[in-house]
Simulated assay, not measured.
Amino acid sequence: MSLVSSSDVKIRSAVLGAAGYSGAELCALLVANPYFSLDHAFASSGRTAEPLSNLYPRFTNAIDIMVEPWYDERIASLQVDVAFLALPHEASEAVTPLLMAAGIVVVDLSGAFRLKQAQLYPQYYGYQHQHPELLNEAVYCLMEWLTEAPGNLISVPGCYPTACSLALLPLLKAGLVAEQCIPVINATSGVSGAGRKAALSTSFCEVGLNAYGFFGHRHRPEIEQNLGRKVVFTPHLGNFKRGILATSVLTLKPGVSADQVKQAFTEAYQNKPLVRLLKQSPNVANVAGTPYCDLYWQQDGEQLVVVSAIDNLLKGAAAQAMQAANVRFNKPETAGLFGGVAV
């Protein structure tokens, strides 16, 4: 299947997992993107076909597409250029080789291809990776720190790793962090991060504020892979719908000045339109529904606190997937993220 090359032909797209929160956000972004078309939306095989607006009434009269049950047999007749996978990890891993064999670019939002070491999957994801050969082929697209052009398999970073990595990479890349420092990260996510499936533990009326996943959370090795060092990462579940607030504490090398810290952040993000450097501590309310990452820091001698905030469903999932797809198909990076206007 040939890829789109003409500027006046839209890139044909399918979303697998469109019934979930991130999948639905992807549908909205694709409709808003002038360079892409939303041709298909799929959910699990056990579902009955129904309009997306039945599942999400906010899309009534805005997104006119049916969410159909998915079967692998559909691939033979699936005339699209790219498939966005908002699926469970094992489901993404299973269908990805089939889609790629059909010449379809895969943008995967699960954790199936994020880690480069297959042996970590049983410990952190609870299953044995069946396609380890694809781990090196997948391009991990933390977009503000992209080091290679996206190929035919794009791995979208997790929501927590996005928030934490964007906060700490400028300092590490500038060589400002003490050699023996192990950053301590506490991050709180809204309940939408647990997905749409009903569960008592993530019911809005049951959630207060609690920590979980001590030392063993699946995003810890991803964060460490990004940063190139160990971290202490403790996630929390908060009583709000969407957003992540991450507070990272680290030790700087002796003599690092406030100007050096500011310069590290400024140089890293001065040409990155989706990262905002603030003069006050971020609030998840100000990033919810946006593709931004907001950053703020405070220094006291060798101690530094960096606070980052993102929308877990957008910058932490669908919006970053859209960024990566835009770059993959040589379109403006932020197309579709602001009502179809690239910034």
Rank of each mutant, 00 (worst) to 15 (best):
H219K: 04
K197V: 13
H217I: 03
F214W: 09
P254T: 11
G228M: 11
F233W: 09
L227P: 02
E224T: 00
C159M: 15
T162S: 15
R218A: 11
G208T: 15
G255C: 10
V207Q: 08
L209K: 13
G238R: 03
L172Q: 14
P183M: 10
C181I: 10
S165I: 01
A167D: 00
N239R: 14
L252A: 12
F204K: 08
G175R: 06
C159I: 05
S189I: 04
G208L: 15
R242E: 05
T188N: 07
E206S: 14
I244Q: 03
I244C: 04
V184M: 07
N210M: 13
L171W: 14
I223Y: 00
R218Y: 05
P235S: 04
F204M: 13
V231A: 01
L245Q: 04
H219Y: 06
N239T: 10
L200S: 12
P161N: 13
P254N: 12
H219N: 11
S192I: 03
G190E: 12
G208K: 12
V256S: 07
S257F: 02
S203G: 15
G216A: 14
E206D: 14
A187H: 01
F215E: 09
I223H: 00
A258K: 10
G228Y: 08
H217T: 01
G208R: 12
L166D: 02
K173D: 08
R220S: 03
S189Y: 00
R218V: 12
E222I: 01
L200K: 08
T234V: 15
G208W: 11
C159N: 13
T202Q: 03
L252S: 08
V191L: 06
S165K: 03
T162G: 06
K230E: 02
C164R: 00
Q225L: 07
V232W: 00
L166T: 02
V232P: 00
L250M: 08
F214N: 09
N226M: 13
C205Y: 14
K253F: 04
K173Y: 05
V207S: 07
L252E: 06
G195A: 03
S165T: 06
G195D: 04
G243V: 02
S257V: 02
T188C: 14
A174Q: 06
R229W: 05
S189K: 04
L252C: 11
A178K: 07
L172C: 07
S203L: 14
K241I: 15
G216Y: 06
A194K: 06
R242M: 03
A174G: 07
L250C: 05
L172P: 09
A178I: 07
S201Y: 15
F204N: 04
C181H: 11
A167S: 06
S189A: 15
L227K: 01
A246F: 07
G208F: 12
